[in-house]
Nucleic acid binder design. Structure first.
Lengths: 203, 203
DNA sequence: AAATATACATACACAAATGTTTTCATCTCG
DNA sequence: CGAGATGAAAACATTTGTGTATGTATATTT
């Protein structure tokens, strides 16, 4: 058979991915070890072996994994300003509005507000999103434009769950907003590959 | 003593308000009938008397109450276009960024996605937010500008829980965004009172 | 190959949350 | 006033989730 290290990381990955799926499907409130194990196809004993205090060990790994995945995409592009990063994220949302990682993160985030033990585990990782994804130094205040674009980004991501969600209207709204402001210098040329969209730009 | 009707609606109100508080403090996951009753100062028997199936009867009332409170503020202003409404809400956020109504609603909303029974109770009320608060007819597509401003609004409301939340930076960002676009005709004059008066918020 | 450590599974104990029933007080109406 | 209805409290059963202990096979080490 495989080595122990391979087996371990395989089941850990299955547990983490099952958790992400369940957070998206059922939300944090209905998340339970039993359900996670069912979905991952392992026993509760295995879960408790790898994550001795259950969700409180598991969820930080979930958050870290999701953040790291996004971070990797940016690292490939070299040094980026905060403004460039938000623009890139907005273009990502334009291209893949259904992107679901944010759901799991939001569920954990909302739960951590009212659960000190959970917050101990995930708080620092969530804080690291600012420097790691948005390129923001927490000490220096960000400029209004970048912050406003973050609002737009988060609002658009959330909109997916709204009653009147429509993918084309979402794109049209983001296009309208982006048309009001200038892209960062050399943005289109530098990140053509990254921001390339299947559908054509409106006039 | 008071009449039965008074007693009834008094305890119902206490239960509803305790629920809103707890949703803000602990989140949906840690909401329980026992905790609600503790906070409201009534027995579980009383809760079950007024809300036979617990949260599934209680939470729709919570949602309806919060939506109705917002709706009332708009009704006093006469007929409003969707664009005017979003502008008003953005001005409200500028004035009272800590407004906590949205937290309880977001908690319920995220939970309802994964709980069909809960969705049965609250889904229709959430849907009614579009016509009742945003003035949007669900059949007709909204214009890109209004939708983009909704993104901005929701993103700004969510920002309150971010690590780098700063009330002044939030205001600056919203000001920056609003300075890019024109206010609806006669907006400042018509709604001077609205955008500067404290909101009637159920405690 | 023996000893040990690791990965995983099963089982039990306990706490918390919900669903349900019973009981009592107080209000309402004939 | 008295019967019935209603609001409220308490008590019980059931379910669900977690914490923890124990058992067993497979891998690693010496």
């Amino acid at each position: 058979m495989a080595t122990q290290i391979e087996r371990s990381s395989a089941t850990q990955t299955r547990l983490i991915e099952a958790t992400i799926t369940l957070l998206d499907e059922l939300g944090y409130a209905r998340l339970s070890e039993t359900r996670i194990c069912e979905r991952a196809g392992v026993s509760r004993g295995a879960l408790r072996h790898h994550f001795p205090s259950g969700r409180y060990d598991l969820l930080p790994m979930v958050v870290e994994r999701l953040v790291a995945a996004e971070e990797t995409r940016f690292l490939a592009l070299g040094p980026l300003t905060p403004l460039e990063r938000v623009h890139l994220m907005l273009h990502s949302t334009l291209t893949y509005p259904e992107h679901s990682t944010s759901v799991a993160l939001l569920q954990i985030w909302m739960a951590a507000r009212g659960d000190a033990k959970l917050y101990d585990g995930v708080g620092a990782i969530f804080d690291s999103v600012l420097p790691r994804l948005f390129g923001l130094d927490t000490s220096a205040p960000s400029d209004p434009q970048t912050l406003a674009l973050r609002f737009l980004l988060h609002g658009a991501a959330l909109h997916r769950f709204n009653a009147d969600y429509d993918i084309d209207q979402l794109r049209a709204a983001l296009h309208w907003a982006l048309s009001l402001i200038e892209q960062p210098a050399g943005f289109a040329e530098r990140f053509a590959a990254f921001t390339h969209q299947p559908q054509a730009e409106p006039a």
